[in-house]
């Protein structure tokens, strides 16, 4: 098997996604050697402690909300901050963007997926989970267009199937997996 098939994993989710994201993250080997970037929709004006909550659930020191121009490091779980779009630049740093919401969302999963795919190309693994809108669908299209791998949570396993369905509709070549299948997939692809 090829070592480190992916250089980055990005996971997008909205309503009903946090539990599934935790299942996936808990399945990772202890010393995974790639960065993981979570884009989870949250309320705009209520300060959320999701990064702390995730870190506690995962039993790790921290889940990092990246600041502008922060270098992207392997082995770190990043969570897109509230109220900014999260992008990546050539040279592997994060950058932030406060322009209009996309799909009523900021952070928008589309914006992050497209930007990550542009930099990481075929070394991108993007996973789209439960949600009630259509954010992420176009972004997964971009991931596939750049030669990366796109996984969508199977709608029947999603608490809110609209987002997975929207992505499957416009991207016939996505892998449709239950969370258990994705866990299995990750274990086969991620080396430490």
């Amino acid at each position: 098997m090829e070592k480190n098939k992916f250089d980055i994993i990005t996971i997008g989710g909205s309503a009903g996604s946090i539990g599934v994201a935790l299942i996936l993250l808990k399945s990772l080997p202890e010393h995974f050697q790639i960065p993981i970037v979570l884009i989870i929709h949250r309320m705009k004006n209520i300060t959320s402690q999701l990064n702390k909550l995730l870190a506690k659930e995962l039993g790790i020191k921290e889940v990092v909300e990246p600041e502008d121009k922060e270098p992207i490091r392997a082995g770190i779980i990043y969570l897109a901050a509230q109220n900014y779009h999260l992008l990546v630049e050539q040279g592997n740093t994060f950058s932030l963007d406060y322009s209009e919401p996309v799909n009523f969302s900021r952070p928008s999963i589309d914006v992050s997926f497209e930007s990550i795919a542009r930099v990481y190309k075929h070394k991108t693994l993007a996973i789209l989970l439960s949600g009630a809108n259509k954010d992420g669908a176009a972004g997964l299209g971009r991931v596939i267009g750049e030669g990366g791998t796109a996984i969508v949570q199977s709608p029947e396993t999603a608490e809110y199937p609209a987002m997975p369905k929207a992505a499957i509709d416009i991207n016939p070549s996505v892998l449709i997996q239950s969370p258990e299948q994705t866990v299995h997939y990750l274990l086969n692809q991620i080396t430490t």
Partner: peptide, 9 residues
């Protein structure tokens, strides 16, 4: 200007 963000706009 940062390319990712500018390219999008």
């Amino acid at each position: 200007y940062t390319k990712a963000s500018l390219l999008r706009r």
